[in-house]
Structures are given as C-alpha cells and as structure tokens.
Amino acid sequence: MKINKLLIVFSVLLLQSCTSQSKKINGISFVASREAVNQSHIKPVVNLNANYAAVMPFGFIKNLNHPDIVFNTNRQWFGETKEGAKQYIEELYKSNIKVMLKPQIWVWHGEFTGYIEMKNKTDWSVLETSYSKFILEYAQLAQEMKVDIFCIGTELEKFIENRPNYWKKLIVKVKKIYKGKLTYAANWNEFRRTPFWNDLDYIGVDAYFPVSHSKTPTFNECLKGWKTHVQTISEISNKNKKPILFTEFGYRSVDYSGKEPWKSDRSMYQVNFEAQTNTTKALFETFWKEDWFAGGFIWKWFHNHSKSGGDNNSQFTPQNKPVEALIRKQYHLK
C-alpha cells in the first residue's frame, strides 16, 4: 500500500512538473495611452486567452548622440510614466494577468534605438548614469509590484557593444533591487552577439525575422523561411542553457508582411489580412511546441479594443482582424 501511495504521489508531481514546463507565456504588448485603464480595457485581453502583458513605460532622448534620458514628466502620456505603469499593472492583476515590465527608450523622430551611440567618453558616462537612474527606478517598481519578469532594455545594440562592462554592472545593481526573472529584448539580428545572457533568466528576442519575399506569403513558405532562423535560435538557447522568450513578435496586416517584418513604414498601406494570418500561424507552428521556447508577447495591443485595428488597418495590431481569432485559439491551448 505504501509503495502504491508513493507511486501515486510521484505520478501527480511528475504530471504537475510537465504541465508547468509546457505552460507558455501567451502575452500581449499593452501599449501606453493618455489615460488610466479599467476592467473594460482588460476584458479583451482576458478574452484573447492571454496570461501575460508587457507594460511599457518610456524614457525619451533628443537624438542618437544625446546622453540624457528624460522620463516621468508631466509632458508624457499617463501610461508612459511610473504612475501609469503601476496603475496598468494593478488593473491587469485584477484579472490574473501576469506582467513583464519593459521600460523602453524612444528617440525623437522615431530613430532606431539600436543606433544610440555617444561620440566621446564623457557622453558615454552621462548616458550610463542617466540610463541607470531610469532602469533602476523601474526595477524598484517591478519589485514593489512583484511582477514576474523585468526587461532591462530593448534593442540597444550599439550601447551594449560599446559598453559591455557597464551592462554587466547594471545587471548586478538590478538584482540587488528586483528578485524576479530578468530578460533583455534584443533585436532579431542582435541576440547572437548579446554578451550577458548567462546573467539573465530568459534570452529575449524581438522576433522580426524575414521569412518570405512574397506579396502574400503562404503558411508553408513561412515555415520554410523559419528553418535557418530556428536552428540558430535553438543553438543560442542550448549554448547558454536559457529559454528563448519572444519579447516582441507579430506582423503587419500588409502586403509583403514577411519580407521585412520590423518595418512600420506608413508608405506600406495595402491591407492584407491573409499575409498577417499566414505569417503568424507559421510562427506559432514553429515555436510553441518547443521545450526551449518560453512564449512571447504579440506586438501590439491597444487599450481601447473596440476602436483598434479593424478592416482598414495595415499596422501590427491583431485587434478586430482575422488573426485575432488565430491568436485566441493558440493561447487557449495548454
């Protein structure tokens, strides 16, 4: 009898272990807005079967060579500030949505953050001081709110390439404040060179990999397009013994959506829902079954669901488009 009881206990524990390992992060990137949110804004996230949301406050710099980061000012939208991020997290928690806090930098005129690079040592020192103040303040919020994941930066390749020792020291400082899981959101063509994955819990990738050159990429084309990329991604995971987390993923509902998925160019305006659906389906099919893959955050989700996306929208959001049903189905799977 004792042996049978032990076998039963062991089987239950094994089942629980397997279930916990297979549970993916089915996330959305919750866009900061001008206003506070309430449960009417969170309900569509729940209806999508999402279990995580990335909350994204912002800091701003004037240009790619400017070292001062401005943040938490009354000139920012509410959701871009510390107060707003806290309020968003509180509302998400009410619906049992877990959170990745992902403070980001915005360069005026929308220039790519990966190109932020100072011209001299003095400016690098100023930038480091400014960025530390920015990220450590949000690390304190992450700890206060007990968020599950904290992202220490997004697409900052030149900053990391030029100042790797600073980033190593920053991670140590973050860990003294925040006791949860850590990641960094590397761009799709950056993550292979990121030097500090061993110091974090997830290898974060903004997954805008090119997978098809077709105007309307087919599901099978995209599956084929992923083959080389997925091999590299899995190798980086195995090398560092860390799971892969897509800190951002998604496609625009536009012609050639799989060719250069990172583009938000407004000159691309031909709405193509089939392209968005096929590319997204292929990404799910390629990654969500893999043990070394933790999950990801769809880019991007606006708080006012009824007025977001829709028939004439060629941008990234899946809201009120055919791909939303695909995501809901995928996120429902256990």
Score class of each variant (00 low, 15 high):
6 L>R: 08
10 F>P: 03
18 C>V: 12
19 T>N: 11
20 S>T: 11
27 G>Q: 12
28 I>R: 01
31 V>M: 14
31 V>C: 08
32 A>V: 10
33 S>P: 13
33 S>I: 10
41 H>N: 15
44 P>E: 03
45 V>T: 11
47 N>R: 09
49 N>I: 05
49 N>Q: 12
49 N>S: 12
50 A>L: 01
51 N>K: 09
53 A>K: 00
59 G>I: 02
66 H>W: 10
68 D>T: 08
69 I>S: 00
70 V>C: 02
74 N>H: 13
77 W>L: 12
78 F>G: 03
81 T>C: 04
92 L>W: 06
92 L>H: 02
94 K>C: 06
94 K>I: 11
98 K>Q: 13
101 L>A: 06
102 K>E: 00
106 W>L: 09
108 W>P: 00
109 H>G: 04
113 T>L: 08
115 Y>L: 15
116 I>M: 05
117 E>F: 09
117 E>P: 02
118 M>K: 05
121 K>G: 08
130 S>H: 09
134 F>L: 10
137 E>F: 06
138 Y>D: 00
138 Y>V: 01
142 A>E: 03
147 V>R: 01
148 D>M: 02
148 D>N: 06
150 F>P: 02
155 E>G: 14
155 E>T: 14
156 L>A: 07
166 Y>S: 05
170 L>V: 09
172 V>D: 07
173 K>I: 05
174 V>H: 01
174 V>M: 02
174 V>Q: 01
185 A>K: 13
186 A>F: 09
189 N>E: 09
189 N>P: 05
190 E>L: 04
191 F>T: 05
199 D>M: 15
203 I>H: 03
204 G>E: 03
212 S>K: 11
216 T>R: 08
220 N>I: 13
223 L>S: 05
227 K>H: 11
229 H>M: 10
232 T>N: 09
232 T>A: 09
238 N>L: 14
240 N>I: 02
242 K>T: 10
242 K>V: 10
245 L>R: 03
246 F>W: 10
249 F>W: 14
254 V>W: 02
259 K>G: 03
264 S>A: 10
270 Q>L: 11
270 Q>R: 12
272 N>C: 14
273 F>G: 04
274 E>I: 15
279 T>E: 00
279 T>P: 07
280 T>E: 00
284 F>M: 06
290 E>K: 15
291 D>P: 10
293 F>S: 08
294 A>N: 05
295 G>V: 12
297 F>M: 07
298 I>C: 04
299 W>G: 07
301 W>E: 06
301 W>L: 12
304 N>T: 11
308 S>G: 11
311 D>V: 14
315 Q>R: 14
317 T>F: 07
321 K>Y: 03
321 K>S: 01
325 A>N: 14
328 R>L: 07
330 Q>C: 06
